[in-house]
Design a protein around this nucleic acid. Structure first.
Lengths: 132, 132
DNA sequence: AGTAGCTGGTTACCAATGGTTACTGTCGGC
DNA sequence: GCCGACAGTAACCATTGGTAACCAGCTACT
């Protein structure tokens, strides 16, 4: 396994650099930017959940879109997807350790959003009034 | 100014709750999800920048899209936009105190992205191999 | 005098992503 | 035999991101 590639000429990125347009870190930032990723991870931080539990916890999310979100999280190794061959079917989503390591940063962002939301709403209102 | 609205029946949201679909916090999370918001704020965290400096710092972003991003950040009260009537024209973008308060949470996320990017890439590869 | 170029955009147009509504398959209960 | 629960898919729009071309105002070059 090649983990230390700093002697190579090509960019191998053993750590990542968000300011490099060619670095896969951009993909990671895109994922966090996916509309329901943050909420899904936050919900799963309390424990494994089923599809409908996630859907109801988020509220007003189309099943297709939630499926897309969860597939991408699974592909990124942030969650696991367990299917139980029962009737009615049961699918349980669980955070992996990698996914759990994201809880801290994500919670920082959502806490910030909750705390500063009033200020942002106020700024939006005055901006809209000025340009009206 | 009404800041404590907990005695009202209607939702007035003095703080925000990301799990409530009707809460404006969702708008804030959407903004962070905008493709270039995080990078723009990170770049501006080092000091005010001009339009082209931001564009070059991000790399491969269409001017139209960068303009959209910056206007939204301005509307949210996260940055200010100063125009100097010179030739050639000069426009300087600066983080507001509100914008500066976002640096911490955003840096937590981007640091996480840089640190765990190799693990994510590996997970993606094995996922793609399995489904191939 | 003509023209090319810099800055910070805008406009028109196209592609990709996100989102909504409707539908599927399986089985147990009524 | 029909309904509903679960975990999705299918077909179809809407929003966003991206590209290429252009503009205004002045300066500097030829």
């Amino acid at each position: 396994m090649v983990t230390n590639g700093e002697h190579l000429v090509a960019k191998i990125f053993s750590r990542g650099d968000v300011f490099d347009p060619d670095c896969p870190t951009r993909v990671v930032l895109d994922r966090i930017g996916d509309k329901w990723t943050v909420l899904s991870v936050l919900l799963l931080s309390k424990g494994p959940l089923r599809f409908t539990e996630l859907r109801d916890g988020i509220g007003r999310v189309a099943p297709k879109v939630l499926t897309q979100t969860l597939r991408r999280l699974q592909r990124d190794g942030l969650i696991t997807r367990e299917v139980f061959a029962e009737v009615p079917p049961r699918v349980v989503y669980t955070l992996t350790p990698l996914g759990e390591s994201l809880i801290g940063p994500i919670r920082a962002v959502s806490d910030w959003a909750e705390e500063h939301m009033p200020a942002i709403s106020a700024a939006q209102n005055s901006y809209d009034l000025d340009s009206a």
